[in-house]
């Protein structure tokens, strides 16, 4: 969930290449279509930065598979974090975009890496100031374990056991100006 653009350092171990990412996203899209017969009631809300690109790609696949233009939004979590005032660097805030009413809808949070779960908690906190969706689900490209809160993903691209001091780097074409990749830095 780093928000900086990045290039692979030399100590990195590649985990997923562009094809693997494409397949994972396509599979997630399928799962979303299968589990949500009423696609028009679904909202995909990406967490900046890479969650946004990810949700756009999921929407393209869903349009192919389910023939529906799914509703999209953006959830910025910076102002909902639970560690404001404890960090020496203030997280950058951006405007969120959830302009549609949320009653009765299924909101799927989209993020690239699921780790401690705190970002998702902040996202749910943000969502609550917009409205009250009927249900909230979570799609993550990579689940690397080490949850600090009782949060789990509904749709996962890849389960990746890691040790806490390792870093996961995700590179997406548009966001990072490079080909898709996921790698681990030891």
């Amino acid at each position: 969930m780093n928000l900086t653009t990045q290039t692979p350092p030399t100590t990195a171990v590649p985990i997923m290449d562009a094809e693997a990412i494409r397949r994972a996203l396509r599979r997630i899209a399928h799962e979303i279509v299968e589990r949500n017969p009423d696609l028009k009631s679904v909202v995909l809300a990406g967490i900046p930065l890479r969650g946004v690109e990810m949700s756009q790609r999921l929407a393209e696949f869903i349009r192919e598979i389910g023939q529906v233009d799914i509703d999209m939004g953006v959830i910025d979590v910076a102002m909902h974090r639970d560690d404001v005032g404890k960090r020496t660097e203030l997280p950058v805030v951006r405007a969120s975009k959830l302009p549609m009413p949320l009653d009765g809808r299924t909101l799927i949070i989209v993020d690239d890496v699921l780790f401690t779960g705190r970002t998702i908690r902040a996202a749910m906190d943000a969502i609550s100031s917009f409205g009250r969706p009927a249900r909230i689900q979570l799609a993550a490209l990579v689940d690397r374990g080490h949850r600090e809160l009782p949060i789990r993903a509904d749709y996962v691209g890849k389960n990746l056991p890691t040790s806490p001091n390792e870093k996961i780097r995700v590179c997406l074409e548009q966001t990072d100006d490079g080909s898709d990749a996921v790698w681990i830095e030891k």
Partner: peptide, 21 residues
């Protein structure tokens, strides 16, 4: 940064926990 906070004024619940406590 103001752009982000202007958006808060358009939400249903115009409150964020950023300076809670």
């Amino acid at each position: 940064t103001t752009d982000a906070f202007k958006e808060v004024g358009t939400r249903e619940i115009k409150k964020v926990p950023a300076l809670r406590g």
